[in-house]
Every structure is written in structure tokens, then in C-alpha cells.
Computed example of a mutant assay.
Amino acid sequence: MAVPFEQPWEAVINRLVLWNVDLTLVDVAIVTRDAYAEAFRTVTGRPLVKLVPANGRPDSEIIFETLAVNGIRAEDEHLPRFLSALAGAFAERRKRLPKEGRMLPGARDALKAVARLDGVVQSVLTGTIKSNAVHKLKAFGLDKYVDFELGGYGEEVYPKATLLQVAQSRAKQRTGTVFTSANTVVIGDSTRDVQAARIGGAAVIAVASGRSTASELREAGADVVLPDLTNASEVVAAVAGLTAPFERQTG
């Protein structure tokens, strides 16, 4: 269970930064595949032959496509059963994450530096289900910088752009500030992250640490493209430059 994020809400929170998890902050692909294989066998009684690539998609979408490419006709009960099995299988493997996975270069310093920016609250916008997102960040000591309760996750069966709006709504309910494209920043590594931010209403910092190239990220419409997160000052400057101080709004 995640430790509740402590935020001094007496301060005015007027910047929302939403991080993608996989290939932006961490890479735990080996453990993820093993968890999917176990969950698939638990739900279908068959071995997993092919796991479709994530490519910025939510777990709910990956599950349906994985069932299809493995010759399983999806039924109504498949998704909730698979999500439950995936959460359990991943939790059982969480101690493997620091050994078989890795934190992306600069991730900790970038999160820590952005957290110091005036008026910022950080959370995640990820295709990963919530419990697994917590495990992934906690394994590398990154959980202390984010408020998981404000994020958007893969078990919520919405397009990522809608998950962005869900996260903005959660942040508004918590802080009283209205979050829009003027004070919300998504940081991700895929063209899907960029597209979701554009559609959902956020500025976007794209990091070329995943499978999308810098040129692809620019063409998708990223406001800022960075090669990686190793220059924390550059990340902070990008967030600051894409947001503006807003007075607390209500309603």
C-alpha cells in the first residue's frame, strides 16, 4: 500500500506535473512481462505466447489485444480478472524490480528538482495499473515525490487524454485550483503521451528515452523535447516555462 503523500496544502498549488512511468522514469520490462505471463495463465489456463508491445497504451488495452493475438475471445469477465491477476503477479515480483529493472538516468534528480518549484504538485499519468505504478516507483525510491491519489491509471478504461482530465479534476478537488493546458504539464516518452496531452489539455515535455525518436516527438507536437532527464535544471526550466502562476480558483 502506498504511503499517503504529504503536501502542505496551505500553500497555493498552481502547477500540476504528470509523469509517465515506463521508459520515462523506470524500465522494468522483464518483470512486467513475467507478471503478464502469469496473469495470462491464471485467467486463460494457457501459456502466454505473445505479449503485444505497450507503446504508450494502457494495461486495459494491452490485455484485450494480448488475448486476441493469443486466440482468446475476450468476455466481460476477462478484464477485471486479468487486472486482478496482474496486480497479484506483479506484487509477488516487486523485490526483483531493483535487480532486474533500472531507474532511467536523471529520474530521481529531476523529480526532486521539480518538486522544489513553487506551487507544484506531481503525480503520474500512466497506462500502468495503480498498484503496479506504486511498486515501480517505490522500488527505486521515487514514490516520495508524487501524490498517487491524483493520477490516472491503466485500470481506468479511458483513453489517456481522458485520464489526463480525470487527473486534473482530482487535483482541482484536492487543491481548489482549476488545471488547464496553461498550468498542467505531462512528461512522457512516447508519441501517444504527446497526443494525449494535446487532446486532453496540457503542455508536454517529451523525453527521447523510450521507443520514440526526438524527431517523432517533435512532429507529434511536443512543446519541449529532451534527450533524457540527466539535466535536472533543464527539466525544471521547461516546466516553469510551460506554466504560469495562477491564483487559487474555486467553483
Rank of each mutant, 00 (worst) to 15 (best):
V166P: 01
G152L: 02
E149P: 04
Q173K: 07
S209W: 05
S190E: 15
T66W: 03
S60K: 01
V146L: 14
A91R: 03
K130P: 02
P8I: 11
S190D: 11
G71D: 03
I13S: 05
I187Q: 12
Q195N: 15
L217E: 01
N20D: 15
S181N: 12
D22C: 05
T32N: 09
A115I: 03
V224L: 02
F140K: 09
V186L: 13
N231R: 15
F40C: 13
F64W: 10
A74C: 05
T66V: 02
I129S: 02
W9Q: 00
D118M: 08
T175Q: 06
R102G: 00
G71K: 02
V236D: 07
V186H: 12
V69S: 00
L79W: 00
A171V: 12
A238W: 13
N20C: 14
T162Q: 02
A54Y: 10
L83E: 01
E6R: 14
N20P: 05
G101P: 03
F179D: 13
G201H: 04
L163N: 04
P8M: 11
Q195W: 12
D109C: 12
P8F: 07
K130I: 01
H78R: 00
A107D: 13
E219I: 11
K95G: 03
F246Q: 14
G71F: 06
V166E: 01
V49R: 06
E75Y: 04
L18Y: 14
G200Q: 07
D223T: 04
L163I: 05
R73G: 06
T180I: 04
V235C: 11
E65C: 11
V52Y: 03
A139M: 00
K172R: 09
V26F: 15
D223A: 05
F140I: 07
Q7C: 13
A238M: 06
G119T: 15
Q168C: 06
V204I: 08
A161F: 09
G45Y: 06
V225F: 07
E6I: 13
Q173P: 00
A197E: 10
D147N: 15
D189T: 14
W9A: 00
D223F: 09
L79V: 02
P53V: 07
R108Q: 15
D193Q: 04
L226M: 01
T66G: 10
G201M: 04
L125K: 08
F246M: 15
T175L: 10
I72E: 14
G101F: 07
R218N: 03
N183C: 11
A11S: 09
V185A: 08
R218T: 05
N132G: 12
L104E: 10
E92L: 08
N55C: 02
A110E: 11
E75Q: 11
T230W: 04
E219N: 08
R41W: 13
V49E: 05
T44Q: 00
A220V: 04
H135K: 04
R73F: 12
Q7A: 13
R33I: 08
Q122D: 04
I72N: 07
M1R: 12
I199T: 15
I199F: 14
K172Q: 06
L51E: 11
E219C: 07
V239W: 08
I30T: 14
F5M: 15
R218K: 07
L137S: 03
N55M: 04
V185N: 04
G154H: 01
G251F: 05
S169Q: 09
L111A: 09
Y145P: 14
P47L: 06
V146Y: 09
G221K: 10
Y158P: 02
T213H: 00
F5R: 11
V224H: 06
